[in-house]
Design a protein around this nucleic acid. Structure first.
Lengths: 265, 265
DNA sequence: GAGCGCCGGTTTACGACGTAAACCGATCGG
DNA sequence: CCGATCGGTTTACGTCGTAAACCGGCGCTC
């Protein structure tokens, strides 16, 4: 790893030295899970996820690495926290014009558009974190495609059902929608400066969270059997077909009217 | 050539003597970039990318870790090699029914379908490797969305142009197609057992490969200015709109005829 | 043959990493 | 006053990627 750590981390400075409560930039002390998570997000945004180490994060907060373990079980769980924080910001930080938590105010189409823009916003705000959003939620790993925020899935399903979709159709819609949304953003974020890679499944232990509070998500538990089915093959074929139709249409349009405006820009 | 070494076999084995020697599974010796890459792929498929370490890979081949550095500059470059190998297998390993390298035999639609299936095949065959396929190619990092195999991009562009697409339309088609394809597969692969994460950008050094042999890709170099433009925002809106149309259509169809077959299954 | 250089592999070493465990100075309830 | 508890530090272990030194044997050239 000698080559990758050539970061320009000169600014981190070890204010840790001695009783240097010289009111430096790094906070004096007073750790806090909240503060740690925020610092982690900031650090990832700034230097990429691979650059985030317990030691460096500690330094960033003017503290020794091991101090973090008082508030966070380990690196993996810290990342969990980071993802949750970022994704939940969709619902929390209000004041945004295109905010979500109006829920299904203007019909499901409107909701879907707002949701898409909201998710895209956080994706672009935290590109380096976003890939983790498309990972299996510990509490309901059977959701396909995987989406970290169950709150979001629940909200989605509620909207669709209320909009008149049957159970089947609602789930199919979830598949198509999330597949498009996450897929697109995953890619957009990738080209924005970070390489995606992947860790192997932690698995084996995660029994604690398994059947916890998903009672708060009635629609989700309700539709579990449908959501758990693996329809990616069909979905794939359908989307592909749809895309080809779209392309063909564009080609012909461009051929007839020579201005060629619709898709090409 | 079949002979590994003309010396007494016992001696050769004894050289690598150690705990693993008696196992017999580990190859005796005779390193080779080819062999290393294959072993790496196999290992990643079996244990996930995070589990692949130089030491372990060495052990797998019955050799000390440092021996690998004779054939591979480092871990990062090894991964590069892995990706390339996997993705190039699309063109090489013939005999497949839906193989690509017939190129544009049956028109561009047919080509696109075959390509999609081919890529999906390798994605499912090496889920743990696939995310790296959607990373920036060292030689042409400006391609958007990023796709590792320039050969594939080139082939794609050729097909579209030959199919009557204008330059603009061809690039737009590339965007829509790769965005759909990679996005979808990225997600499908994710739910297949591995967490996606991301490494930070190596950048800074990769000057060597920069302007190498992309003379072999005329279409690609030709369309560089178009390919380099960041149209993700428009693309995003268009796809979203298209998706909503699709959903609305499905909803209405299901409402009229009560069988509800098209999208829900 | 005798020497020698290269080639392919091993050994050793260093500075990161995550984290278990022991440690210590405050602060505080009895 | 006195232990206990809290917040943070120190020390330590095993693993990582890899630079550098090392070394046995094959094929050259004299």
């Amino acid at each position: 790893m000698a080559r990758t750590d050539d970061k320009r981390d000169a600014d981190v400075v070890a204010v840790t030295e001695g009783p240097a409560a010289a009111a430096g930039l790094t906070r004096p002390a007073g750790l806090d899970r909240e503060r740690i998570l925020r610092a982690a997000i900031a650090y990832i945004d700034a230097h990429g996820l691979a650059a985030l180490t317990m030691r460096r994060l500690g330094a960033q907060l003017g503290v020794e690495a091991m101090a973090l373990y008082r508030y966070v079980p380990g690196r993996e769980d810290l990342l969990d926290g980071v993802v949750d924080t970022v994704v939940e910001s969709l619902f929390d930080d209000d004041g945004r014009p295109d905010d979500i938590h109006l829920e299904h105010a203007g019909g499901w189409q409107d909701y879907l558009v707002r949701l898409a823009h909201g998710v895209r916003r956080i994706a672009l705000a935290h590109p380096a974190v976003f890939p983790l959003v498309a990972s299996r939620p510990p509490a309901a790993p059977w959701v396909r495609p995987p989406l970290r925020s169950l709150r979001m899935v629940e909200s989605f399903l509620a909207s669709m059902r209320e909009g008149g979709f049957s159970d089947q159709a609602a789930v199919a819609a979830y598949r198509a929608y999330s597949s498009f949304l996450l897929g697109h953003l995953l890619l957009e974020v990738t080209q924005l400066g970070a390489q995606v890679s992947l860790l192997d499944l932690p698995e084996g232990d995660a029994d604690a969270q398994r059947s916890t509070d998903l009672g708060r998500y009635p629609h989700l538990t309700d539709l579990e059997p449908l959501l758990a089915r693996d329809e990616s093959a069909v979905e794939f074929e359908e989307s592909l077909e749809n895309l080809l139709d779209r392309l063909t249409r564009v080609l012909h349009e461009a051929r007839n009217s020579e201005d060629g405006a619709v898709l090409d820009r």
